[in-house]
């Protein structure tokens, strides 16, 4: 099986450790993961802000980069959701039949990391050790767009030494929402503040999620409040 890592632009530029952890984890499980260097971004920031024309070249690059892989694994529920659900819209907008065909071939191959681990590899115990109290935030797109269900928590529960604590109101949105975080900054922060409060109330030392974007938002609030809770990408915990 030819497996590609779709690292996402945010992890690439801001959170490379999430990408590195994904590589470490997949190799440990015997997957020879490749990094197609032509890749850039899934185009979601454009689509979700309404800039479909601007998304076209980005999606075209995406298709060219990942064409021919059997699985395209990404440590992001949101970007996986975008590739699976939005690339068709962008291709239709482009009016380019070849791009539409490419999207039809490539986008169904995109899987979020926990889907790949649990469904494709069939593992829940990845051999990680992480002796800390952890709360898990199910990000909206992984939860509702992809429906990853309990895969992330099953993976976390199998981590040696890890204590998974309940996060109150876990399924409510953290308020990141892409450009929403800036266009509606006040509302975004109000939502994030409640999430941060729940994180602190949970008694966790570490907040874990499968999307660096949401973690950047919640983490940014937690550090501004000097809350003393750290945020980590799920891949980093599973690779430890």
């Amino acid at each position: 099986m030819k497996v590609a890592l779709m690292v996402t632009c945010l992890n690439d530029a801001m959170f490379p450790s999430a990408g590195q952890a994904t590589v470490t984890l997949l190799r440990r499980l015997g997957v020879d993961v490749e990094f197609p260097e032509q890749q850039t971004c899934c185009g979601q920031p454009f689509v979700n802000t309404g800039y479909l024309d601007e998304a076209v070249p980005v999606v075209r690059t995406f298709v060219e980069a990942f064409e021919g892989y059997d699985a395209i694994v990404t440590p992001s529920g949101s970007c996986a959701g975008s590739a699976r659900h939005q690339h068709g819209i962008v291709a239709r907008r482009s009016g380019d039949a070849a791009l539409a065909d490419g999207v039809r071939r490539v986008s169904p191959k995109v899987v979020e990391l926990t889907e790949f681990l649990v469904d494709t590899l069939g593992v829940t115990d990845v051999g990680a050790t992480f002796p800390h109290r952890v709360a898990y935030h199910p990000t909206c797109h992984s939860l509702r767009m992809l429906g990853v269900g309990d895969r992330p928590t099953r993976l976390l529960q199998a981590v040696h030494g890890l204590e998974l604590v309940d996060l109150p109101d876990a399924e409510s949105c953290c308020g990141f929402g892409g450009t929403f975080a800036v266009k509606n900054a006040d509302t975004s922060v109000a939502m994030g503040a409640d999430k941060a409060r729940h994180v602190v109330d949970s008694g966790a030392e570490v907040l874990v999620a499968g999307d660096s974007s949401c973690l950047m938002h919640i983490g940014g609030l937690l550090t501004r409040q000097r809350a003393g809770v750290r945020v980590m990408h799920l891949a980093e915990v599973l690779a430890s």
């Binding site: 690292v7 992890n11 690439d12 530029a13 801001m14 959170f15 490379p16 990408g19 590195q20 590589v23 470490t24 190799r27 490749e34 990094f35 260097e37 975080a181 800036v182 266009k183 900054a185 922060v189 994030g192 503040a193 950047m216 938002h217 983490g219 940014g220 609030l221 550090t223 501004r224």
Partner: peptide, 26 residues
């Protein structure tokens, strides 16, 4: 709009892409 209420980590010195190239995929 972001930084009024939220911190942002400084960009890393090395991107994932640069790391992959430098270390030949780790």
């Amino acid at each position: 709009g972001w930084s009024d209420a939220r911190d942002l980590p400084a960009p890393p010195a090395e991107s994932f892409r640069a790391w992959w190239k430098r270390t030949e995929g780790g």
